[in-house]
């Protein structure tokens, strides 16, 4: 018996090893990874995006100070330029702002808030848009007309203007001390309300096409319910363009949030996003503290660019016509 186990074990191990190499090599060989391997720009964008993401999400770990904690900074340290300049301080790599906060820490927390707002609003618009698009495309007729006309109406609002409007209304309704807390919801609501239409339109088109296909007819002949057909049959076949739009939309949402914050209706100074930082830094640009505005702006540009490049790559990979 022992002999048996002894002889079997290595072969079993070997088989597992072979299986793992098989899986790894099949993933390595798959079309997606192949196309990734062949696109240097995408690899670089991926790495940069991942670094920014990890730094932002792990801001608590990577930031030397917590800029939200008033005890962690002091006005004595204010306006120190980056470390490589003559009057730099080794504690503050990228210098400090007017209140003495570490710009590097601010940046990480800012990235986190920007990305959070971007992801949440994109996720909400995606869900809303996909559901409305599916309903619109599958049922057609009057429902379709209604949803699509609402979408058309929403498309005629610029996001910025809509956010200013919502923000104005919110400021009117809620008491002044709540303004800082509601601003994140205002931003998310504005981006969602002005962003779901492209998902709805795309999914509607795809759903319209898929509904005509015979597998959907087959499901109807079997007596499947409409919800089952929409979500189990049609949705998986319409999701790839949605992912592409979603990725590109994240970059747009981060930029929109930054714009709104820059205009002063976005994140409050005590929860600074990249846009808020740029807004604040902008005021000191002409008094010589260029580092306060430059670094957030650079991170914003690089982040948006990388997300867009990755999004373009996903679009190309998922589009069989371009292969």
């Amino acid at each position: 018996m022992n002999d048996l186990i002894a002889t079997q074990e290595p072969s079993l191990k070997r088989r597992w090893g072979a299986k793992m190499t098989d899986i790894v090599s099949s993933v390595w060989d798959s079309d997606i990874v192949y196309s990734l391997r062949n696109s240097k720009v995408t690899i670089v964008s991926f790495i940069v995006m991942a670094v920014i993401l990890i730094l932002g999400l792990g801001a608590d770990l990577f930031a030397p100070t917590n800029p939200f904690d008033p005890t962690s900074f002091s006005l004595f340290d204010s306006e120190i330029p980056p470390v490589w300049t003559d009057s730099g301080d080794s504690r503050f790599i990228l210098g400090t702002d007017i209140q003495g906060r570490d710009v590097y820490s601010l940046l990480l927390y800012g990235v986190r808030i920007s990305l959070m707002v971007g992801f949440v609003s994109v996720l909400l618009s995606l869900v809303l848009g996909v559901v409305l698009g599916l309903i619109s495309g599958y049922f057609g007729g009057k429902v379709d007309a209604l949803i699509m006309r609402i979408a058309d109406a929403m498309l005629s609002f610029p996001t910025i203007m809509f956010a200013l409007l919502v923000s104005g209304v919110a400021r009117g309704i809620f008491p002044k001390e709540m303004h800082g807390d509601i601003s994140v919801y205002v931003i998310i609501f504005s981006i969602t309300a002005t962003g779901w239409m492209q998902y709805a339109r795309t999914v509607r088109g795809a759903a319209l096409l898929e509904s005509g296909k015979e597998y959907v007819q087959a499901a109807r002949v079997m007596g499947s319910s409409s919800a089952r057909i929409m979500f189990k049959h049609i949705l998986p076949n319409t999701i790839s363009p949605v992912l592409v739009i979603g990725t590109l939309h994240i970059a747009l949402a981060v930029l929109t949030e930054a714009t709104l914050s820059f205009l002063g209706v976005g994140m409050p100074p005590n929860q600074p996003s990249l846009g808020t930082l740029i807004n604040e830094g902008n005021q000191y640009l002409f008094s010589g503290q260029w580092w306060v505005v430059l670094f957030p702006a650079m991170v914003l540009v690089v982040l948006a660019l990388c997300v867009n490049l990755v999004g373009d790559w996903i679009r190309d990979v998922l589009n069989p016509k371009l292969r």
């Binding site: 015979e214 597998y215 087959a218 002949v221």
Partner: peptide
């Protein structure tokens, strides 16, 4: 409905490609 079913023309469109 259990008593009758349908077979379709296009074998490429009549099966859900993701299933």
């Amino acid at each position: 409905r259990r008593g009758f079913q349908m077979i379709f023309q296009d074998p490429y469109a009549s099966l859900n490609p993701r299933w």
